[in-house]
Design a binder for these strands. Structure first.
Length: 576
RNA sequence: CGGUGAGUAGCGCAGCCUGGUAGCGCACCUGCCUUGGGAGCAGGGGGUCGCUGGUUCGAUUCCAGUCUCACCGACCA
């Protein structure tokens, strides 16, 4: 590709509305341009990276026996009514009517459409297992699109759906996809973790998220430094504290704690460490349920774990008025003793091992010391409701400690069970001629988001450093002085030879000063840059600069193409 | 949707407080010059100042409304 005939509108300055690095750099490198909030044009360079990643995804999906197809963007409302999600999905689903007033939506995901296709076409156990996938544009009317391609409203996604005769067969399909995902992100040279995750609105029994590690990531994840355990903190189990201390023997006593609302203040005032206190939090559901959650003073509540434990559809912190009604106390002095209303009290499992602790007295400026469960109050149950922290013991192995990371969710695999197949009545006949419900799994990869995440993880002050596998071009040839016919001839020959070897090469033949070309090449993240200048040429030499390391290698003119080709091949080699 | 901030040339910004029809840098066009890390000189093109209404002789500037965009929360590939 000739740079002078291509279209790479780079900019020196960063558009003011781009906040994260990947967004800024994709704009500056001329990869994307915004059309509307969360909606982008993919310019030629950006499209190249996206296509390259798509193709890696395709290769691995095909290898894992998934079959490519393509479903429409526009979907009829009836299917969504059948699955129950027309009512449930909310405003994220962009709905509209056609000229006949029939209702439609832009597809945010394709469980309904694929299940409809499958229930019409898959009739026998002999037709399974089967897995269909597509690379397609989704639309989700996100409340707050942000960070460029990281969270767009319109975005490209690879989604796959597996169909199996029963749960254990579905597990095998799930494992196959899990392994394919591992290979995909490994091939892209990304530093990532596969973590246990909450299933959210897609539903189903279990799931894993694939997280690219980056400080700007929207999710917090933990991984064990010793075993393979890794999870989203939303989901991460806290270790079981087994140290059951002796039964509390000290007498319960009410003490004045004027204006001591925060745990640290109370503990400081009483000259105790915060882990000798128990804090109480009131949560409410939209339906009007309330719960009092008890945690060790220095621990944080995990709302999602509490919500899932209670089986609520939603959860939020109770308002001050609600809290007053439940406990009879202002915020800051809440506790399990002497509640005004009989509400559910759930304690974190860690609290089970505590004795003689401090709790709020449900009375302004009063706390109890030496409180003990059973003697002083009863609770409904114990549950794992606290958020794990870095340094916690691993919940799975004896020796490990949890490390904490920020991550960008680039892929998510779900075991759906029969959620959609049941709703849409997707059944098959088994070997005995008996009708059975199909078991499903679904598997997504954010295509644009992965490219953005790769940039987020790989950049420096000069611009993008994309891994070779998804860089828009693998290498470039920069002619330092276009007026020098010797330089131009040599550069062009290298360029043509590299193309002959099958390399994706950009020939920077522009009549620009060298500095401009170097800056642009760095910015757009060309992994290997071959510089042809008159000085080197006089000695029959050209140089190769490696973008990721900054290393400069001087090579003889005749050996450079093969050398660069070898470097590219080495970078693309992946474990089979 | 709640909270915060911003809309002036393709991009980054100034001007507005104290009304008199707009300016700087980059980018773009022409010429000269220059060619190993975003050069220099000269000339030039480009803006209904987000939109609507009000106040005023006169509004980018003051007032009201409205739209859009970004950031922080719930959602998610």
């Amino acid at each position: 590709m000739l740079y002078s005939r291509y279209f790479i509108p780079t900019t020196k300055e960063t558009p003011s509305d781009a906040e994260v690095v990947s967004h800024q750099l994709m704009l500056r490198a001329g990869m994307i341009r915004k059309l509307a909030s969360g909606i982008y044009n993919y310019l030629p360079l950006g499209l190249r990276s996206i296509r390259k990643f798509e193709n890696i995804v395709r290769e691995e999906m095909n290898k894992a026996d998934a079959i490519e197809m393509l479903m429409p963007n526009v979907q009829p409302a009836e299917l969504w009514e059948e699955s129950g999600r027309w009512a449930f999905y909310g405003k994220e689903l962009l709905r509209f009517k056609d000229r006949k007033e029939a209702e439609f939506c832009m597809g945010p995901t394709h469980e309904e459409v694929i299940t409809d296709m499958v229930r019409r076409e898959i009739k026998s156990y002999r037709q399974m297992p089967v897995n269909f996938y597509q690379v397609q544009t989704k639309f989700r009317d996100e409340i707050r699109p942000r960070f460029g391609l990281m969270r767009g409203r319109e975005f490209i996604m690879k989604d796959a759906y597996s169909f199996d005769v029963d749960s254990s067969a579905a597990d095998l399909s799930y494992d196959k996809m899990y392994n394919a995902y591992m290979r995909i992100f490994e091939r892209c040279g990304l530093n990532f973790r596969a973590v246990e995750a909450d299933t959210g609105s897609i539903g189903g029994s279990s799931s894993h998220e694939f997280m690219v590690l980056a400080d700007s990531g929207e999710d917090a994840i933990v991984s064990c430094d010793s075993c393979r355990y890794a999870a989203n903190v939303e989901k991460a189990e806290s270790p079981l504290f087994t140290d059951k201390s002796e039964a509390g023997s000290e007498p319960l006593q009410k003490v004045a704690t004027p204006d001591m609302k925060a745990i640290v203040d109370v503990a400081g005032f009483l000259n105790l460490s915060t882990d000798k206190t128990v804090k109480a939090l009131v949560y409410a559901s939209e339906k009007g349920d309330f719960v009092l959650a008890l945690l060790r003073g220095d621990h944080e509540l995990n709302e999602l774990k509490l919500k899932n434990y209670l089986g609520w559809e939603d959860i939020q912190m109770a308002t001050e008025e609600q809290i007053l009604a439940c406990t009879g106390s202002p915020v800051g002095f809440l506790g399990p003793i002497g509640l005004k209303q009989d509400i559910t009290v759930v304690a974190d499992r860690v609290v089970r091992g505590m004795s003689n602790f401090v709790v709020g007295a449900n009375e302004k400026d009063q706390h109890y010391i030496n409180a003990n469960i059973g003697r002083d109050f009863e609770l409904s149950s114990y549950a794992d409701i606290r958020s794990v922290e870095a340094g916690d013991a691993c919940p799975r192995c004896a020796s490990g400690k949890l490390e904490m990371w920020r991550g960008i969710e680039v892929g998510h695999v779900f075991k759906l069970g029969t959620k959609y197949s049941k709703a849409l009545n997707a059944t098959y006949l088994d070997a005995n001629g008996k009708e059975q419900i199909i078991f499903m799994g679904c598997y997504g990869i954010g295509i644009g988001r992965t490219v953005a995440a790769a940039i987020e993880q790989n950049h420096d002050e000069n611009g993008i450093i994309l891994p070779v596998a998804i860089a828009p071009f693998q290498c470039s040839v920069v002619a330092v002085n276009t007026k020098d016919s010797g330089v131009m001839a040599a550069a062009e020959e290298i360029y043509l030879n590299l193309e002959k070897l099958g390399c994706e090469v950009l020939f920077d033949d522009r009549d620009e000063r060298p500095g401009v070309k170097f800056k642009d090449n760095d910015l757009i993240g060309i992994p290997y840059r071959i510089v042809v200048g008159s000085k080197g040429l006089a000695e029959g030499k050209v140089e190769v600069k490696v973008r990721s390391t900054g290393e400069v290698i001087s090579l003889a003119l005749e050996e450079v193409t093969q050398a660069v080709k070898s470097m590219i091949d080495a970078a693309l080699a992946h474990k089979e």
